[in-house]
Amino acid sequence: MTRILLHTCLLLLAGSMAHAAQPLTDLGELNRRLQETAGKITSIESEFVQTKHIDIFDEDVESRGTFLYCNGTQICLDYRQPMSYRIVINGNRLMTLTDGHKTIVNLGSNAMMNEMQKLIGVCMAGNLQALQSDFDLTYEADAQHYYIIARPHDKNIAAYLAKIGLTIDKKDMSVTELVFHENENDYTRYRFTSKRFNQLDAHDPRFSIQ
């Protein structure tokens, strides 16, 4: 009986190890596939679930909505739950819209928001080269995904962001999960589903700031 249990445990352990991510030493294929994809994808529309985890609290806060991205300069997070709320970044302007109340700010005057805009755009497009100037990147992979961890070496970014976790689906090289770790324990995770590529118009009214 003990032997059967031991064998079962070993089999389970071996199974889990086979699916565990391994460090990626040869980045050639990843970079080649990212370059191919970057040239092809101009826009993304997807559903997302955002989970805010704060370690000392006993429950996570979940929000849902639609994510829109176009041409690297237009981003929209259109929240439906728990409340109707829209954040639009278009060029160097950011607009928040809630209950009909708009706030428009110039990103040029806000270094942190400017950095966030760059990060979201770069991460969603999987543009790792753009991250390399400000972050140290480590790579892992399993059969289905690439996992990239980006740790900032810029002090200004490190003040509010400990690391970024990026999960890329090997099938279509799209980002399936994005995690902003504010410190070792607290994070905000975005999971993207129902992705539609290159179907958005740059003049889509949801990108409009006025």
């Binding site: 805010k52 000392i56 929000s63 809630t98 607290d186 905000t188």
Partner: peptide, 26 residues
């Protein structure tokens, strides 16, 4: 105007308050 969420909890006999923007930034 800035909207957000505020979560509170008594932790080690101290009140902890965390406020985050809707897109998750603390």
């Amino acid at each position: 105007q800035q909207n957000g969420l505020l979560v509170t909890r008594l932790h080690n006999d101290e009140a902890r308050l965390v406020c985050a923007s809707p897109f998750g930034l603390t």
